[in-house]
Amino acid sequence: MPPLAKVTTAARPPLQPRDASIVPGRYWHALADGRIQCDLCPRFCRLHDGQRGLCFVRARQHDRMVLTTYGRSSGFCVDPVEKKPLNHFLPGTAVLSFGTAGCNLACRFCQNWDISKSREIDTLADAASPVEIAQAAADLRCRSVAFTYNDPVIFHEYAIDVADACRERGIKSVAVTAGYVCPKPRAEFYRHMDAANVDLKAFTERFYQRVCSGHLQPVLDTLIYLKRETSVWFEITTLLIPGENDSEGEIEALTQWIMEELGPDVPLHFTAFHPDWKMMDKPPTAPATLTRARQIGIRNGLRYVYTGNVHDAVGGSTWCNQCGACLIGRDWYRLLAWTLDAEGRCRRCGTPCPGVFEPRPGDWGAHRRLVRLSA
């Protein structure tokens, strides 16, 4: 891995002081019993003074809700956008990725648990204002900024401010999210986003309740909202866990629902699980399981079904749904081929490929680069 890079821009404003990490939060109301209720996500945490929600970062301070992590991050990294994963959004380009701490779900298999389940503010070692993040992305020649590692739903106000600062510089904003959010904040949030990858963690309520401490329907509602009510480009990821959500019946139901409710052109990524956090007893996902899931999705009419977290040139590439030509060849995060024309159409037959494409692919490649933002 390349050494840590330090990004400095003389024209930037100074870093916010530590107290600036606490800002008023939106979407809450007072209850008759003296508590206040957070209305940001379907957990509806009800708090006495000094208490925090399950997400850890939204708290009651006297008679208001506050976000306690504004302007602070667990770290910044330049990644290939395919790592989010997004295969139809500015392929080959670099994205500046960052997260904060906490999460509003409690997935037992979380592969970023040291960040999403952190209860230590010291985890947030890197500080940056929205303007600084947008400037850093420009300096690093990133086409987009991604809110990732933990769910941006819980740092709603910070994510929106960063997205607005980026938009002023022509930089896109990407939400990597579980989609577990209430309707009103969801509508506000996605007015500021350009792309999203939504984790559809399984297709049973039992899995969501037992493994994630959440519910399935709010996530389905978010996906339908994105498709019907926004112009946000979005893709879906399902991490297949052996014995938990990888049965043929469940994959049939999941892919049929996507086809019926979202249509054939929403990309779906089936990705490989590796043992982590509270699911160390589960084996890694076999590549054959991912291939089988991809075949089921294609059989049910989905045009862009991918395998991820494995080397699979066929399952990782984009194929023309009309003539079968390889439009974008990939091996993991490396682009191997590009046969789209300047308008995102197949050069062989002229069929458009849905997505957000530039005339030429980016050349960032598969590498990642840790960066430290500083004054």
Rank of each mutant, 00 (worst) to 15 (best):
G102P: 09
D363M: 05
L40K: 06
A375F: 07
K278R: 12
D194I: 05
A94E: 02
T100Q: 10
V176R: 00
G362W: 00
Y306M: 12
L262D: 11
Y208V: 11
S247N: 01
G301E: 08
R348D: 10
A325E: 15
Y304P: 11
G179A: 08
E82G: 11
D246P: 02
C353H: 06
S173Q: 04
M1N: 04
G53K: 01
P218G: 06
I224Q: 13
L90C: 09
L54T: 13
D194G: 11
V174D: 05
I36K: 01
D19W: 06
P275F: 04
K117S: 12
D312F: 03
R345N: 11
V174I: 15
A101R: 06
E244R: 01
T148W: 03
E188R: 12
M1D: 08
N112C: 12
C323E: 05
F273R: 02
D114V: 09
T69N: 15
G71H: 07
T339F: 00
I258Y: 01
A11Q: 04
R64G: 14
Y225Q: 05
A163P: 07
G263K: 02
A30C: 03
I133Y: 07
L47A: 10
V78S: 10
L96A: 04
A59W: 05
P275Y: 02
G50H: 02
R18L: 13
C212W: 00
P130R: 06
T339R: 09
H48T: 14
A195W: 07
V181G: 14
G355D: 03
K172T: 11
T285N: 08
E229P: 05
A11G: 13
A375E: 15
V162E: 06
L200H: 08
R169Y: 00
V211Q: 05
K282V: 15
P85Q: 07
Q16S: 15
V305Q: 09
V78T: 13
A196K: 00
P183E: 13
R52W: 06
D164K: 02
V81E: 04
P275C: 08
I296T: 07
L105T: 14
N309G: 09
F147Y: 14
W28M: 13
N321P: 00
A178N: 15
T100D: 01
V66D: 08
C166I: 13
A101W: 01
